[in-house]
Design a protein around this nucleic acid. Structure first.
Lengths: 128, 128, 128, 128
DNA sequence: GTGGTCTAGACCACT
DNA sequence: GTGGTCTAGACCACC
C-alpha cells in the first residue's frame, strides 16, 4: 500500500477498514488480523497498528477479546449507522462547497451523471 | 475559524477568501485588507495572516503593490480556473467516496435533490 | 464474563466465586467444579480455569485433594476475614473517591439511601 | 509523583486531572501545561503525556488550539456531567458490591459514618 | 514555542 | 500467540 502523505497513515488505514466493514468484505464478528500482522502487511510500525485498532474500538467498530484478538463489531445497526454517517458527511461537504461556489441543482445533477459514467466506464475499461 | 480541526487555520482562511473571490464578493482587482487587519478581524497571529497572502500570491490569486497593499488578481481566466478546480475536487471526492460505499447513480441523484432542497429551504427560512 | 473490560477474566471469575463462598451459595467444604468443568461452563480457556484455582488456593479459599477435586475451605474465620476485606476495600474506594469529588457526609448518606432503595425495588420488581 | 503499578500511568494522571477540573483547581478554559511540560513534571515520556491529552480530548474534557496549547473545556455542563458520572460509578460499584456481600442499608450507613469521620479526623490531624 | 505522527524496541499480563 | 503500555528519539506542520 502506498500512503497519501497529506493524511496520517493510521487514518488512511482506518478509512480503508471502515469501508471493508461497511461493504461486508470484513463480515460482522470476523476476526481482524492481529496488530502485528497488520503492521507487517501495511509495512507500518506495530504501535501505529495498535493505534488503528484503539481508535476503531473507540468508534465501536470493533472490540477486542483479551489475548484472543480483535473482532469486527457484531452490531449490524452500528455498521449501518457508520455507513449513513460517512455518506452524509460526503454529501454535506459536497453540497455545502458547491452551493458556496454558486452551483445550481441542475448543474450538480448533470455533473454527477457525466462524472459517474466516466468513472464507471474507466473501471470497466480496466477489466472488461 | 475552528482552531481545533484538522485543517490548519491558514488554509481555512484561504478557502474562505477563495470563495469570496470566485463568487465576486471580492471583485477582481479590489484591495484586500492588510495582513495586520486580517490578523485582527480573524483573531489570528500576524505571522499566520502573512502566510495566507504569501500562499495566495503563489497561487496567483492576488498580487502586492509595495506600499499600496494587496489586491485581488485581475485575471478573469485564473479565477474561472480556480472555480473549476475547486468544483472538480469536490465532485471527485464525493463520487469516489460514495462509490466506495456502494451507492448507485440513481441514489446519488435522489440524495442530491432532497438535500439540496432542504438546504435551500433552510436558507430561505432564515431570511425570507 | 466480559472479555473486553480492563479486569482480566480470571479475576472476574475469582470475584464471582468469592462472593458465592462468602454468601454461602458455595458452602464451606463443598466440592467445586473441576477446572475442566469450570472452563466449559464459563466458556474460558482451560489454562485460565487452572489459574483461577491456583490463585484461590494461594489465598487459602480452597484446597485440592489429589484425585478427588477442589473444595471450599472449611475455615469459617478465613471466609469472614475475606468478607471483611472485600467490604473494606469497597468502602475505602468509595469514600476516597467521593471525598476527592468534594461530597459531604450527609450527601453520601442520602445518595446511599435513595440508590439502595431503587436497587431493591428493581430486584423485587423483577421477581415479586 | 509515585504511580500505582496496578493502573497504567496515563489513567492515573487522567484521573488526577479530572479531579482537578471537577473541583475547580483547574478552572474552565485555563491552559493546561504543554505535553512536554507534563512529561517533565510527572517524569513520564512525552508520548505518554500526549496520550493523556488525546484521551481527555476524546472525553471532551479539554480541547487544543493548534500551535497554542491544550485548554480545559469551557463547557460547565460537561464538567458537571463528568462529576456526576464519576460519582454514580463510585456509588453503583459500592452498592452493587456491598449488596452482593449481603449488607443491609443500616449497616452501610453506619459504616459510612464511622469511616467518614475517621478519614476526616485523620486529615485534620495532619494539619490541625 | 505548540501538538501530531511515526518508528524502534522493550516489557508485561492474559489466553 | 494476543493486546496494552511505556520509553526514546525523530520529524513535521502550525502559530
Amino acid at each position: 500500500m502506498d500512503f497519501d502523505t497529506a493524511m496520517p497513515i493510521y487514518l488512511q488505514v482506518i478509512h480503508e477498514m471502515k469501508q471493508k466493514i461497511v461493504r461486508g468484505t470484513l463480515p460482522l464478528g470476523s476476526r481482524l488480523p492481529s496488530a502485528r500482522e497488520l503492521a507487517v502487511s501495511y509495512q507500518i510500525n506495530p504501535n501505529t497498528a495498535n493505534r488503528i485498532y484503539r481508535e476503531m474500538e473507540a468508534e465501536e467498530l470493533c472490540y477486542t477479546k483479551r489475548g484472543l484478538g480483535t473482532f469486527v463489531t457484531e452490531d449490524e445497526k452500528k455498521v449501518a449507522e457508520i455507513r449513513k454517517e460517512m455518506a452524509e458527511e460526503l454529501l454535506c461537504n459536497f453540497l455545502k462547497g458547491m452551493i458556496e461556489l454558486g452551483f445550481q441543482q441542475e448543474e450538480l445533477l448533470l455533473m454527477i451523471q457525466t462524472e459517474y459514467n466516466k468513472k464507471k466506464r474507466a473501471e470497466s475499461g480496466i477489466e472488461p
